[in-house]
Design a protein around this nucleic acid. Sequence first.
DNA 1: TTAATGAGTGAGTGGTCACTCATTTTAAAA
DNA 2: TTTTAAAATGAGTGACCACTCACTCATTAA
Lengths: 217, 217
Amino acid sequence: MITMEHPRIRDYFNQNLEAAQDVTPKQRAILQASLDLFAEKGFQQTSTSDIARRAGVAEGTVYRRYRTKEALRVAVLAPILTHVAPSLASDFSNDELRQRYSSLRAFLTAIYDDRVAFVLANQREIKVILEMVAFDQDRRDTVIRRVAPVVVQQMAGVLKQLRQDGLLVAWPDDLVIQTILSMIGGELVRTALNLAGANRQRERAQILEVLVKTLTP
Amino acid sequence: MITMEHPRIRDYFNQNLEAAQDVTPKQRAILQASLDLFAEKGFQQTSTSDIARRAGVAEGTVYRRYRTKEALRVAVLAPILTHVAPSLASDFSNDELRQRYSSLRAFLTAIYDDRVAFVLANQREIKVILEMVAFDQDRRDTVIRRVAPVVVQQMAGVLKQLRQDGLLVAWPDDLVIQTILSMIGGELVRTALNLAGANRQRERAQILEVLVKTLTP
DNA sequence: TTAATGAGTGAGTGGTCACTCATTTTAAAA
DNA sequence: TTTTAAAATGAGTGACCACTCACTCATTAA
């Protein structure tokens, strides 16, 4: 289901913060306010006094822990990129799950719903990451080198099995993954641009139809 | 060919400026310098004194025609969005061109090469537009409502003919276009992320193979 | 009870920036 | 040549912003 509940980065982020006992309540408020404001207005458009006001804190308090505004951004995004995001990546190599993907359609449906729900549930956080990464090739490389292998590895197992069962074309894994993610990404962009029609279910069925046709041997 | 020459937005932009006789040379220099600097450093990071210096003009001159920096940004991007970009959209409804797309593969190859070349040749200008649109839903809607119909209309003619000739699946135009653009977009993202392998030609062939398989009846 | 610690404070600082305006330059009209 | 209107100038201005620092105060150790 597209509308199913999905783990929100924000929740993991907060749990992560509460688990860290060296972070005071005010510092936690600062990190949460930063994440919110960066997502709402963008990093540049957010002033440190904005953050202090939203966190209910003096501006100096912001600078007690974080030497610069940029360091604050890193402090907000680093845990998301290192702990939170990977732990949210669906574990397709999980044996139990692998059983369920007895057909190509079932597998594609699962991935589609999972990824769409994940992105929709975490739009704001993803936006902040994209903003940081957009004009910085080095950071782009860092992020992608952390995420890409996980994605490929997660999917490799299922793809192999589907191929053995004669349910999947004999294309290289890279190409299959790129095809799936391109179609899902295209749909998400369409949604972000408000081009999606009223009937989400119908569009979902169409996209899945395209993918099934494309990836059937 | 991916490496073929492609019209650059910048060139059309300059031609557009020279055609407008009510724009003084200094005002033209200001618009050109703005586009360059916005693309190089981003809008926020570009100061009006930067623009004046680059244009070889006093800062007051910048404000003679444009009352705010934001108005200057609009003045730079408006012609690109209204005149330049549409005139650069490949005219697939052109009769001569339609003759050439006698096969689905020929059509897809043409679109792929055209769009990839266009984006690569105009990365900087596209970046400026994306930057403006990223945190502003209204502007996003404005831009998309100007661009989307053109794209759909341009392609509708060829798609109809291909379908009549039995060369294209009987899916709705929207879905076909979304599929094509998703795969091309995916490849561009892959390139932007430095994930593309050394062999561009091979990847191009693979993507086209996927699209041909997907869109053949 | 006193001393030490460190999180928190907020007025302050230097610097930058978007924007203004009194003045000068330019060039076309008279 | 003189007049005139528009274009251009650039020093100036107030607002804002990232960041600092001298100080407060609650908590904990001695």
